[in-house]
Nucleic acid binder design. Structure first.
Lengths: 226, 226
DNA sequence: CGCGCTTTTGAGATAACTCAATACAGGTGG
DNA sequence: CCACCTGTATTGAGTTATCTCAAAAGCGCG
């Protein structure tokens, strides 16, 4: 089986070994984006790729009927904005204020000028394919509990901070976003959190602050019937 | 909304405008693979990419518990085998005998020698990301009927042949494969086919031969509640 | 203090699942 | 040539995880 951090396949974005975005002294475009800002919209001409240094992005797509589907969350280390053809095929907005490194799409597509960055972006695109495949497997075959537990595990691994023996992290996205991402309803997401709370697997400070009390139980839950 | 052939987002592989794999007179590696043959296995070192000229491939992944999940089907025009890092992350076998053009991975990754092919493969990778996102949306939000109808529509559009006013195509994959691909059970797939037959939307010659009797009804079914 | 928004809880409905039986088709050997 | 056997597909009956609709609780803010 391929790349995993734990026993669990990465569910929505492969763990990139976090390395400084650029080791060279070259001028590098890095910007701060506030919560609520949009990096790009579906249909926009894709001139840039974006690497998340800190903060969280949300990639969504709008359906025919106007409903919004969350395709992915962009966590630190992720590179987002790979276009289909010349245009973006999702919306991308900021859930919690983010520092973003901006790359020109040209560097990705041609890359004569900067082969190192070119390679880096290419690898990110391949990782993205793999990550989406993992997500497909999750959506197709996992129960609500397995989905939520997997989701929390990934967030914990990628954005968690230790507090004593426990890990804590924040959920910058709403229950609705989580539901949209995992193919569930808000109510099911909420009920599943409640079950995890009652079993003392996690605790919630606020609804958007998670404390992992029992990591093993959470891992078990993410693989339940297997 | 982006690239669609009909009102329906492409569900598992974006429609590549089918063009001859190589317009140059250069030597080109093309091979015939028989049904049942494997192009590669998960974990194999990825030395090649594969373009489907004819036939159908199946990309699968094996779960911890030994169950097999169908990630995608490779139809004519698709390019498959994009690795994560240096290794393949799916199995790929042949469902119906296929002609395959083989590209060296190096050309994709570096491409100094053949920038044209490099670009071509790069675009295919981006299309793949987009296709997987479409599939995610399908898995997350569509009913069994919508999934099956979407699936049949895509096959009809991409591999169908006209017979009088109707279109016909074959299903080289089993009901189990379809179920695995769409996140359903075999029984639900079969029942849904039956509903479509009884409503005279489609007819089945054999269980693997589909005749589309009422395209509009099929399109409606693929978008049902929207 | 009250209003609006998100989250949680409750109760009932249902789409899809599971388990089980039957039908069908293709291949084999008598 | 036909009966049999094996694997796939279909149909049936009952269960259940998740959804839907509805109400209550919590929380930030003017």
């Amino acid at each position: 089986m391929y790349v995993t951090l734990s026993a669990e396949p990465m569910s929505f974005h492969a763990p990139s070994v976090i390395q400084p975005p650029c080791t060279q002294s070259k001028p590098l475009v890095q910007r701060q984006f506030k919560s609520g800002a949009y990096l790009y919209h579906e249909g926009d001409d894709a001139t840039n790729l974006y690497e998340v240094v800190s903060g969280v992005l949300r990639l969504t797509r709008v359906l025919e009927n106007g409903k919004r589907q969350v395709i992915a969350f962009g966590l630190p280390g992720d590179i987002v904005g790979f276009p289909n053809g010349t245009r973006h095929h999702t919306d991308c907005d900021v859930l919690s204020s983010a520092e973003i490194v901006i790359y020109k799409r040209r560097v990705f597509e041609a890359g004569e000028s900067d082969p190192e960055t070119h390679q880096r972006l290419l690898r990110a695109a391949l990782r993205e394919i793999s990550a989406m495949q993992d997500h497909v497997m999750m959506l197709a075959r996992k129960s609500a509990m397995e989905k939520i537990a997997s989701f929390l595990l990934v967030l914990s691994q990628r954005t968690g901070a230790p507090i004593g023996n426990y890990a804590t992290f924040s959920l910058p996205m709403s229950r609705a976003d989580i539901a949209d991402f995992l193919g569930l309803t808000i109510e099911t997401v909420s009920r599943t959190f409640t079950i995890l709370r009652k079993s003392k697997t996690i605790a919630l400070g606020t609804p958007q602050t998670v404390l992992v009390l029992d990591l093993d139980a959470l891992i078990d839950a993410s693989q339940a019937d297997t």
